[in-house]
Design a binder for these strands. Structure first.
Length: 263
DNA sequence: CGTATTTGACCGTA
DNA sequence: TACGGTCAAATACG
């Protein structure tokens, strides 16, 4: 595909993303969501605008920057067997990284965590994952997950490389993310029971403790994936923010919450 | 007991 | 030399 075509396709996707972000912003505004959430929506829109401008610039600037071939980018290339040298990460790979802000860490693929690192200037550590089928299928897909500082329920995921077609994907789970109107949720590939599982323990919490009984306990102890249903609850005045914001939710039991989310 | 996760050590880059 | 990314031994878990 020509660079201009790719840029055009990317612009289309970004326009779609921007539209969704604008709708989210309007929704948050209408429901009186706290300024932090509205600022986050604005930030998403600004980022998309910058990305669109960058893509337009790159596409309009001629082909001087497109000299690298797919092979030359070195993506997915493994070092020769026996080589002790670590593969060098080319700048091409960096350029092809896909960054996703998501409410769920799970995207339907099987990942294996291989590292966790505190990053300077970041409050939360960064998690490193690679495809669980790397050895079996030679899949070179990797991702880095950062928990957003201003909204710990959101994850900033950077994907490197692509999964091989043979990599199994949790399609049942992906299909389960269709709502009653047949609309696909934002977080595609979320496992069916992921809502019932915390994706990460909150700081200082035991990740293995029993499912809490009350809403306050549950939001205070865990970081949960934000599904569309939960987003609806947020927009209808139910806050999933910090434990301190949850005083009014004592009356909501887990059972009632599950009824709201999975009628 | 096999598999997944944790975490300190190591390596490459800027 | 500091920092980010990855490795791999130790550990936890089912």
């Amino acid at each position: 595909m020509a660079t201009a075509d790719r840029a055009s396709a990317a612009c289309g996707v970004m326009a779609e993303a921007r539209e969704a972000a604008v709708r989210l912003q309007a929704l948050l505004q209408a429901t009186g969501a706290d300024p932090g959430k509205r600022e986050l929506a604005e930030q998403i829109i600004r980022c998309i605008d910058r990305a669109r401008a960058a893509v337009r610039g790159a596409a309009g600037g001629g082909s001087s920057t497109t000299g690298k071939t797919e092979q030359g980018l070195g993506l997915g290339a493994r070092p020769p067997a026996g080589s002790k040298r670590r593969a060098r990460r080319g700048c091409g790979e960096e350029a092809r990284a896909r960054v996703v802000a998501s409410s769920a860490m799970d995207d339907g693929y099987a990942w294996r965590k291989y590292g966790e690192k505190s990053i300077q200037g970041h409050k939360n550590p960064r998690f490193y994952f690679r495809c669980a089928y790397r050895d079996e299928l030679g899949c070179g897909a990797r991702k880095q997950v950062d928990r957003m500082e201003d909204d710990p329920s959101l994850f900033h995921t950077t994907y490197f490389g692509e999964h091989t077609p043979a990599c199994p994907r949790d399609d049942d789970a992906a299909a389960a993310q269709l709502d009653r109107d047949g609309h696909r949720f934002v977080a595609q590939g979320l496992p069916l029971d992921s809502f019932r599982r915390p994706c990460l323990p909150a700081e200082g919490q035991d990740p293995n403790k029993e499912m809490p009984a009350s809403m306050v306990e549950f939001t205070a102890g865990y970081c949960w994936p934000l599904t569309d249903q939960m987003a609806n609850l947020v927009s209808s005045g139910v806050s999933f923010g910090t434990p301190g914001e949850l005083g009014s939710l004592d009356a909501i039991s887990m059972e009632e919450l599950m009824d709201l989310l999975w009628p």
